[in-house]
């Protein structure tokens, strides 16, 4: 056979049919979160300081301290960055932003705490802490994912929450690519759209 053996048509659909499916799965996840026994989710706890972590886990002093330091550098790398304290505070609230340690021209939300996942055998996975930030009444990750209310320290999250987040950087300018195609397209001004590149 010289053609693709099988295509999963459901993954190729773009219309309403697909949306209904994803709405269903969202509802399902919601149910699992409430019951707190979803196999795909993970129990986690948020510590706002290293001390809080140590008090609750006296045998894990070094791990708590390391996790906190780790969360600080991860926050610096992955948090959204702003040009001024004010623009940052507009998003995260008054007094909730700090100057970047790596670049004094940047401001980012202050670390609200760090979240660690509960291991199946008991204890916590301090090696992969996820920095969290206070956003209105919720804890959010660097990518904006909400992890529940700020009053709840024990949360149930997706395993994605502990995956490494992408690096962010303050953008100086935009629009430095795309000028050539604009010039080429305006040549064919009778056309109702820009040219494609294939042939």
């Amino acid at each position: 056979m010289k053609r693709t053996k099988e295509i999963d048509l459901a993954t190729m659909r773009k219309s309403a049919a697909r949306k209904t499916t994803s709405a269903k799965s969202v509802m399902l996840t919601g149910t699992l979160l409430i019951t707190g026994c979803g196999s795909s989710g993970q129990e986690a706890v948020v510590y706002t300081t290293a001390e809080q972590c140590i008090v609750e886990n006296p045998d894990s002093r070094t791990e708590c301290e390391k996790a906190y330091d780790n969360a600080i550098s991860e926050a610096e790398r992955t948090a959204p960055k702003y040009n001024s304290q004010r623009t940052c505070e507009t998003e995260f609230g008054y007094n909730q932003c700090v100057q970047s340690q790596s670049n004094s021209g940047w401001f980012l939300p202050a670390l609200g705490g760090f979240m660690v996942g509960r291991l199946t055998g008991g204890g916590y996975d301090y090696g992969r802490p996820s920095p969290v930030f206070g956003y209105q009444n919720s804890w959010v990750g660097a990518d904006g994912t909400s992890y529940g209310g700020r009053s709840d320290r024990r949360v149930n999250v997706s395993k994605e929450a502990f995956k490494s987040k992408p690096t962010t950087a303050r953008t100086i300018s935009r629009g430095g690519f795309g000028s050539k195609i604009q010039a080429k397209s305006s040549w064919g001004s009778s056309r109702s759209r820009g040219s494609s590149f294939g042939g």
């Binding site: 021209g105 962010t168 950087a169 953008t171 100086i172 300018s173 935009r174």
Partner: peptide
């Protein structure tokens, strides 16, 4: 056309993600 020049000589998307 929306690709950005991020500080530290990198390219960014519209969420400032590198």
């Amino acid at each position: 056309e929306d690709i950005g020049h991020g500080e530290g000589d990198c390219f960014t998307d519209t969420d400032d993600q590198v």
